[in-house]
Design a protein around this nucleic acid. Structure first.
Lengths: 111, 111
DNA sequence: TATACTCGGTTACATAAAGTAATTTACGCA
DNA sequence: TGCGTAAATTACTTTATGTAACCGAGTATA
């Protein structure tokens, strides 16, 4: 009588849990262009607050997707970049872009 | 002096806004197997509440990803299935699955 | 030497989204 | 009549996110 719990792949679930948090995908997408500094990411994504950006970058760093590099210059420069694991998300991003191009109408996009 | 706002593709942003909401991807993933009823989806995704499932299904229906079909039997049966737009998300799901298999360690997945 | 400004955040507080549990409506069953 | 199910919805609580001010180190400006 119990439900048919076709167990979902735990890795898949973990990946979704990581990637489908608000802002995460857009941050990764931005970093596909190359390393960026905190304020650059913040400014390039409207409505993304420094608070959440800070949280997301920490999560992504911990997950192994993003690398935080400190350049001990004066003043210090900190750059965020994608690891190999992060760069390997590129095909996924392409898929989303293709799907969006095929199916999302411009009027809908405005909302 | 202003930020370099490399404007993001609005369709991409809209797609992300739709797909990266909590539970959305998992619901679509479930429906890739075929049509399902409300309670079946609810039971197959632990911690997903009926309230949120109801919201998500409405959003997805409105977006054209999911089709809600009412079978006027006694008692009435309602099934949710993917439209062509929804089924076209399959490659993306595969990509996520591949990425997860490659990069997510089982220990991490438990969390 | 103040003064103001930038970067990379953090903190305190307000609002929005999600989780929990009870309720609803329409029907079937004993 | 009383109980149960499917598909939701409502009221209430908890968590996540948004907003804005602030911090410390360094830098340029007057």
């Amino acid at each position: 009588m119990a439900a048919e719990l076709t167990q979902m792949c735990p890795r898949f679930e973990r990946a979704i849990g990581l990637l489908s948090k608000r802002w995460t995908t857009l941050i990764v997408y931005r970093l596909l262009d190359g390393p960026r500094r905190f304020v650059d990411i913040e400014n390039s994504l409207s409505n993304l607050s420094g608070k959440v950006l800070s949280e997301r970058l920490k999560e992504l760093e911990e997950a192994g997707v993003v690398l935080r590099t400190v350049y001990p210059e004066k003043p210090v420069r900190i750059e965020y970049s994608l690891t190999e694991m992060g760069r390997d998300l590129a095909p996924l991003m392409d898929d989303i872009q293709c799907w969006a191009t095929r199916w999302i109408k411009v009027e809908q996009a405005q909302v």
